[in-house]
Design a protein around this nucleic acid. Structure first.
Lengths: 248, 248
DNA sequence: CGATGTCTTGAAGCAGTTCAACCAGGGTGG
DNA sequence: CCACCCTGGTTGAACTGCTTCAAGACATCG
């Protein structure tokens, strides 16, 4: 897999050798691309495609054959499952620089869809599958990502099965808050990337209940809300308490 | 993995070279041990410990440091998470020959506990962690197991968030049924390995609701029940319909 | 035999759903 | 520029599916 470069004997990693699109990309430092050498990135870069998607557009559907993977560059992806009668549940949310796609599987068990304006970097499945075989570091990164998704899924099972509507909404806001900034108890602000309907599909509630609980949390000064989407959390600890986050 | 003949000098895999305990073990054919050579199994076998646990005894607790992995030989393991006030949710069920333990993590995010009389084969974490580095086939098996657990977790998220009590109970019975036998629509029988309380902890219900729904399903001739634990399903398709199993 | 644990059944209560009305912002076109 | 509609959100009132509380059935066990 190592690829020789024009007139340079030693293989070294240098930003200048990186593809232009990779240089400033978050996926290289914190995502799966960080497991690849400059030469591998240059190789793979010839097949990657950057895409910008509008909210609601589908990346792949439940049951569909997967032909490519992708990395989230900017925006939020929602993973959903539906019953035949149309009942829908969001089973995962992915933020930059998360990896989209189930390694080794041919068909997807979930629908992946842009929740916000979304920028992704797609790569043909066959390409990455081949690379994984030789690059154990890359396989390990993918493994770590899936393990994190499993931990998240189980955390949400606890939320779905045992928390009240109020706790569910607080848990959701806490999740977004923890993505918006690192731990610390000062006041801070973030944007909700989902509609009330989508939040309810994530929490196993109705949109009316979500709306009522947001209003309730606002009434208790646990959050402030502007323009329906912008949230200010004066004390992260109060939000965490309302969410009954489990300390594992 | 190629299997060979007696009286040869080269290192090949032969049942006779296998540790006695491994010879008839299901984990070797269908579980992670299948990814190891006879010599690796002999090596690792010096550190493995077979244990028989009674229902309710703990394998490891939520937040506890993990020092060993294990394989389920016989029985059922439940993975649980609890909130501080004691509310509990089962977030995973493991059957033979599943692997117990989160690779690479130092602490467990869940409690693992015997749900039935349980036989497991434990191995020190450091031992297996070292082996994984050199055996990519083994890593791949672990990866596949985790991917299956993720798919299960998401399936259950849909159930927890969007199904009715009746559908939840039917889904649970369907899950057990599919473990008891392969697909086919004839009548068949299996045993429920959990108490009503545990079923409710799995489905996000109360034990009373579970009891009522079991009674209701029995009244509709979708299932027959003997001694509270033994179930006969006359038509698997009727159970699947009641469970609203999603076709992905 | 009482004691204990698991399960069932009944009746009352309530958290969250359902149905419906209304509000605010943002196009769009006459 | 205003009337119009459309989408997303809020709020109210009635309803209901599940929970809660309570009692009783059944089996096992010292």
């Amino acid at each position: 897999m190592t690829k020789a470069l024009p007139m340079r004997p030693t293989v070294v990693t240098c930003d200048l050798e990186l593809p232009a699109t990779c240089r400033s990309c978050d996926a290289r430092s914190r995502g799966v691309c960080g497991a690849m050498t400059a030469s591998q990135l240059r190789e793979i870069n010839r097949f990657t495609v950057r895409k910008e998607l509008r909210p609601g557009s589908e990346i792949h559907a439940q049951g569909e054959v997967i032909t490519s993977y992708a990395n989230v560059i900017r925006g939020v992806v929602k993973l959903t499952k539906v019953l035949e009668d149309g009942r829908l549940q969001i089973v995962g949310l992915q933020f930059a620089p998360d990896f989209i796609g189930r390694p080794f599987a041919t068909a997807s068990a979930v629908t992946a869809e842009a929740a916000t304006i979304l920028e992704i970097c797609t790569v043909p499945k066959s390409m990455l599958d081949r690379l994984v075989v030789f690059n154990s570091k890359l396989e390990r990164r993918l493994f770590d990502q899936i393990l994190a998704e499993l931990d998240d899924a189980r955390e949400w099972m606890l939320m779905l099965g045992r928390k009240t509507a109020r706790e569910k909404v607080a848990s959701f806001l806490h999740l977004l808050a923890s993505h918006a900034q690192a731990e610390e108890d000062g006041p801070f602000e973030f944007e909700i990337p989902l509609t009330r309907q989508e939040i309810s599909d994530f929490l196993g509630l109705t949109l009316e209940t979500v709306s009522r609980q947001v209003t309730a949390l606002r009434g208790e000064n646990i959050i402030e809300v502007f323009d329906n989407r912008r949230v200010i959390v004066p004390f992260a600890s109060k939000l965490a308490a309302a969410a009954k986050i489990d300390k594992a």
